[in-house]
Nucleic acid binder design. Structure first.
Lengths: 202, 202
DNA sequence: CCTTTCGTGGTACGACTGTATCCCCATAGA
DNA sequence: TCTATGGGGATACAGTCGTACCACGAAAGG
């Protein structure tokens, strides 16, 4: 047999190159030749490790979903359990906002994939990566806060969580579009959480 | 002189065809030939009325901005002045949500343009169409409600409005992605407004 | 040794793209 | 009636796209 190559490592390298292009020049700038050039390999290599362009694109979104999921999960793990619900929300929602260059790039690529999936059913984000799980988890956290009376009466945990996630997503959009900076977005989230958990002035 | 043609009308026709393609098959499916076919004319005609592809695309986003702006403005005018702030917010935010097929199509196209503008500075949405004006207007409305004591204490009108617009945008995304239906989105908005204006159970 | 097979460079093909060019026709002003 | 001109049909061109194909080097198994 000839020399063996770590296919997974090779694929990760190419996928990273793809996402670098997608986040800087957009998804429509992604061609097999461009990915090859960005990764410093020949067109043939891209063809070899991803037979299709479709396969290549799917690999991109899979990696992206994994990254975003990891970002939230890592921060959630870092703070352990038994923390005040307010802190949980602050950390989780804060992990969604594009605070550094890396997360901003990922969110840009994610938005590109999302928009493409709206009209091109082929490479639909399929959403089903985490939003549901995240929504359920946070709803549970808030529900327990309600049961413990740590939150003003009349709060509907499900709707409140849906609203918070939508709010965060909307803020992500405006941050990416540079209509607002991250600090502003964090302030809006913090304000909403203050109002929800009754911290300081409410 | 040969027969004169209404250039503006011709351009509107072509722009409508462009947006029809963008909202159904995506922005990347928009080519001069496709627009020509969708409009039932020859490629030359598209070239004639929009010299560039860039010009064509710009016309698309201009029309889109005008439509979205008109939708909000019409509903705002229909309810006149002097209405309770809560109603104003309900109508304006409700006008942003994609309730019928037409507004859904426009929001799809808008999202496509927005995503494209994030990485392709050329055809950037440039945002400056209305969001600022809308934000200022609503902030004024809410500020007056605060001054009149129609709203719980401690409410920051600016941040509250920014949050409501981000929330609505986030909901639009999830509705377009079919993770939620419009009724659900409207319910979330109504819930937030209830909490803000203290209607019913709060 | 030879041979099989993995990994890869190079290149060619057909289908698209935006843009440019050439030509004709119908009509309004002379 | 003649003619200049706005409107548009048809086609060509250079470029890029995804994909397919061919050939070759190198290394491992017989």
């Amino acid at each position: 047999m000839p020399r063996r190559v770590d296919h997974d490592e090779r694929r990760r390298h190419l996928t990273a190159a793809l996402l670098r292009i997608a986040s800087t020049r957009g998804l429509q700038a992604v061609s097999m030749r461009e990915v090859a050039a960005e990764a410093g390999v020949s067109l043939r290599v891209v063809q070899y490790y991803f037979t299709d362009k479709r396969t290549l694109m799917l690999s991109g979104i899979a990696e992206l979903a994994a990254r975003l999921d990891r970002r939230v999960r890592e921060r959630a793990a870092a703070i352990g359990t038994g923390l005040p619900p307010r802190t949980v929300f602050e950390v989780v929602l804060g992990a969604i906002l594009p605070t550094d260059e890396a997360s901003r790039a990922d969110q840009l690529a994610w938005t590109a994939y999302y928009a493409a999936g709206l009209t091109d059913p082929a490479e639909a984000v399929d959403g089903r990566y985490a939003p549901d799980a995240l929504e359920r988890w946070l709803t549970g956290v808030l529900q327990r806060a309600v049961d413990a009376g740590e939150v003003p009466a009349g709060v509907d945990p499900r709707i409140e969580v849906v609203g918070l996630l939508a709010l965060t997503n909307g803020l992500v959009s405006s941050v990416l579009g540079q209509q607002r900076d991250v600090a502003d977005a964090q302030r809006v989230v913090a304000y909403r959480l203050d109002r929800l958990f009754g911290a300081a002035g409410d």
